[in-house]
């Protein structure tokens, strides 16, 4: 599992909220730290990849899918780079 510094829970949130909240949260993070985002929206997997490509100061350092109690959770690890 990718190491991280803080967690943002966006379970149940639908597009665009996982990204809107992550954008805000990463701005509050010290440079160099990693935010773990926990989402249930499957569309977030491709969207985080697309966002990381265009976003300034953000790097997608990992993505995982885990099953918790029968529910798929999509984990995105994003690093503030500047």
């Amino acid at each position: 599992m990718t190491s991280f510094d803080q967690t943002l829970d966006v379970k149940g949130a639908k597009c665009p909220m996982p990204l809107v909240k992550s954008r805000k949260a990463i701005g509050d993070l010290p440079v160099g730290q990693v935010l773990k985002v926990v989402a249930t929206d499957r569309g977030s997997v491709a969207d985080f990849q697309g966002w990381a490509k265009t976003a300034k100061n953000v790097e997608l350092v990992g993505q995982e899918t885990v099953n918790e109690g029968g529910q798929d959770l999509y984990l995105h690890f994003i690093k503030r780079t500047a």
Partner: peptide
């Protein structure tokens, strides 16, 4: 124009 570009 993906919505996440509006965020940036």
């Amino acid at each position: 124009l993906p919505y996440f570009e509006f965020l940036e």
